[in-house]
Design a binder for these strands. Structure first.
Lengths: 171, 171
DNA sequence: CCTTTAAATGATATAATATAACATTATACA
DNA sequence: TGTATAATGTTATATTATATCATTTAAAGG
């Protein structure tokens, strides 16, 4: 039966990067976007900042500032904590990276064109994160805050658990 | 016109503790709850743990571990970081306090009877936090995660902004 | 082009948050 | 009461983040 069981189709996992996805494309894309955004806004994407962005984008795994620093030091002997934190601060301001509070870590934003808070799924097994932007979630929160008479400045939405790939791997 | 303008009624601010609320009641309530919960589960709410819980409940403002330590040291000269972190770990496990990731701080749970993640409104002006548990938000997130094939272990939902009291104060 | 000014980076020190590891004391319970 | 386990004491150190001042680089106007 060639065209049997549609129920055995793999679960849709759009949000998480596939195991064999072409990451060089993600990286190029992120750098191109960053260049464009900074050109448009007049912000200066210096070599250092660009390099830190590349390091953040070395994968879809949120990286700690000191992880980035360690990598950076192999190229710039004089890199120090402020070197990294300043670059990250810039990248955060430009919306090019997000900070993951529950990990004290940073991850590239796949869609930096429109400012947004970001909703994150974070896998405890493999460490990968995926950014959602579900408007239903957003609206529910806006409603809830409005009912309490609260004015929102920033939303931290970080969901820890197990990603589809790691669920499969367990079986 | 004695019964004019209903539109001038104060905004409903149920979630945030009123300026003059009877906090001693909050505190007693929390301690009673804690005693009950630990008795039921067989967990040991020692004097130290109970005292740390009291300190966390000294207000509705999330406190850092070292804030708690400073307070604790006035009574126990030998208190050290592990003293506080261990007590907090216990209290977190029992669901008696929550950790606010974006502040590296801890706040008492007003409703520890049923385990829950907690959704927080955090005022940047006065530092107070209010815990929501809006099922609409919760469901939206569960849906969103399910669509991505993601299994949820823990949710971090922290909304920073301005509380109703501080909005009024600005006028 | 030069100068002035602002922005970015270098460099050093230290603050703030959190945990590891082992010793000692208290509690439960057989 | 003795023994095992849990809790706490104690010291050291890891991890994350920022303050401060010096130096270099880039931008903008004359």
């Amino acid at each position: 039966m060639a065209h049997a069981a549609p129920k055995t189709q793999p679960v849709k996992t759009a949000a998480f990067p596939g195991v064999g996805h072409d990451h060089s494309h993600c990286l190029e894309d992120a750098l191109d976007h960053a260049g464009q955004i900074c050109t448009d806004s007049g912000a200066r994407l210096t070599a250092l900042r660009r390099r830190v962005l590349e390091l953040v984008w070395s994968g879809h795994r949120p990286l700690g500032a000191y992880d980035i620093l360690t990598a950076l030091k192999t190229e710039r002997r004089n890199a120090a904590p402020p070197t990294v934190y300043r670059a990250l601060e810039f990248l955060l301001q430009q919306g090019l990276v997000h900070r993951i509070e529950c990990l004290n870590a940073f991850v590239g934003c796949p869609d930096p064109d429109t400012p947004h808070g970001g909703q994150f799924l974070i896998c405890r097994d493999c460490g990968l994160s995926a950014e959602l932007n579900d408007d239903t979630v957003d609206q529910a929160i806006r409603n809830s805050a409005a009912q309490a008479g609260f004015t929102i400045a920033r939303k931290v939405i970080e969901i820890e658990g197990q990603c589809p790939n790691c669920q499969k791997a367990e079986m």
